[in-house]
Amino acid sequence: MHKKPHLPEKICPACHRPFTWRKKWAKDWDQVKYCSERCRRNRGPH
């Protein structure tokens, strides 16, 4: 089993859990705020 190199992390403002960089976010990592669609939809009043 190979180990992945250290990937950038962010904290989701909805669930307050850390999430790591994903290849599908490579082009827009700076704009990614939520760890999932569920958190994005349930972000609440901010």
Rank of each mutant, 00 (worst) to 15 (best):
M1Y: 08
M1C: 05
M1V: 09
M1G: 11
K3R: 09
K3H: 10
K4Y: 10
K4M: 10
P5K: 10
P5M: 06
H6S: 07
H6D: 07
H6Y: 09
H6P: 04
L7N: 07
L7V: 11
L7G: 03
P8K: 07
P8N: 07
P8I: 04
E9T: 13
E9R: 11
E9A: 10
K10I: 04
K10T: 04
K10Y: 09
K10L: 09
I11A: 07
I11G: 02
I11Q: 08
I11K: 06
P13I: 08
P13T: 06
A14R: 04
A14C: 14
C15Q: 04
C15V: 04
C15S: 03
H16V: 03
H16N: 15
R17T: 13
R17Y: 08
P18H: 07
P18W: 02
F19M: 03
F19H: 03
F19E: 00
F19C: 01
F19T: 01
T20R: 12
T20G: 05
T20Y: 09
W21H: 09
W21L: 08
W21P: 01
K23N: 14
K23P: 01
K24E: 15
K24I: 09
W25S: 01
W25Q: 05
W25D: 05
A26F: 11
A26D: 15
W29T: 08
W29V: 04
Q31P: 00
Q31K: 08
V32W: 02
V32R: 02
V32Y: 02
V32M: 05
V32A: 06
Y34D: 05
Y34F: 14
C35F: 01
C35Q: 00
S36H: 11
S36Q: 10
S36A: 12
E37Q: 09
E37H: 07
E37F: 05
R38A: 15
C39L: 07
C39N: 04
C39G: 03
C39M: 06
R40E: 10
R40D: 11
R40Q: 13
R41K: 15
R41E: 14
R41V: 13
N42T: 12
R43S: 12
R43E: 09
P45I: 12
H46S: 12
H46Q: 14
